[in-house]
Design a protein around this nucleic acid. Structure first.
Lengths: 129, 129
DNA sequence: CTTGAAACTGACACCGATGTTAGCTTCTAC
DNA sequence: GTAGAAGCTAACATCGGTGTCAGTTTCAAG
């Protein structure tokens, strides 16, 4: 499929798709005229890339782990090197901390929301008197 | 306390503490000579700010919710406006999605790590033959 | 053909928190 | 009073993914 369709199906901009390619995360075929031609599996791959970006991984690290992933591109899966495993373990711990932080922040927001929603008319009543 | 001690006790750089002040998130007293003088509660407040930053909130939104927080600065707590509540609810949902994404990404990492750790010598054995 | 949509490359801009440097002032302990 | 540590302001830089614009080329349908 062409880049426009891939962008539509993944919700990722064409700009970003070209960027991913420059980072080595995608390697589409080219038509005679030079247009990118993506296989169907690119959709899942792009979504995966987005998830890893959202988790704070940089393109460099994503580049390293993509070949180690099941169903990444149909080719034989590589096994992560000990160094990569060590780095990924660190990333994993970072993600753990991030999740814990997010949960705490969510609680903070909940408290503010609840304080406002739990006594919604209180300040209004006060002002009305 | 001075900015150096606050930085030490929170793990946040002096640069960032001054930045927070410029964003209206902190309002320390000043000595006659112009040095910042923070109350003890600043430690908790800075940690809270960091957590909210980690959750992806921008300083502008943090600025808005700080006055609505219990024990934020000892002053009377304001009640969030309906608009702010709406925005915070959106943030809350964003955080929810972020947590879900992080969990998925963590699973992805786990799979790569496990694949490497679960059969650590496999590729080596193959090469050895 | 022709024509309009879609794709291509390349360059520049942005965001927002933080790092860094420079040059000057204040504080504190002797 | 003095020296060295610590603080001050201001300005510029960075990071990485993404937006956007410009100018050209390719594709596909009439």
């Amino acid at each position: 499929m062409r880049i426009g369709e891939l962008a539509r199906r993944t919700g990722v901009s064409e700009r970003s798709l070209r960027y991913y390619e420059k980072q080595g995360l995608l390697a589409p075929e080219r038509t005679l005229g030079g247009h990118r031609d993506y296989p169907d599996g690119a959709v899942d791959r792009v979504i995966l890339i987005q998830e890893l970006f959202a988790a704070g991984l940089h393109s460099r690290k994503i580049y390293e782990i993509l070949p180690c992933m099941r169903d990444s591109d149909g080719g034989p899966n590589e096994i992560a090197t000990p160094l990569l495993v060590e780095e990924l373990t660190a990333e994993r711990e970072r993600i753990d901390r991030m999740i814990a932080d997010l949960i705490r922040s969510r609680e903070v927001l909940d408290e503010v929301i609840l304080t406002a929603s739990g006594r919604p008319a209180l300040s209004v009543e006060r002002e009305a008197r």
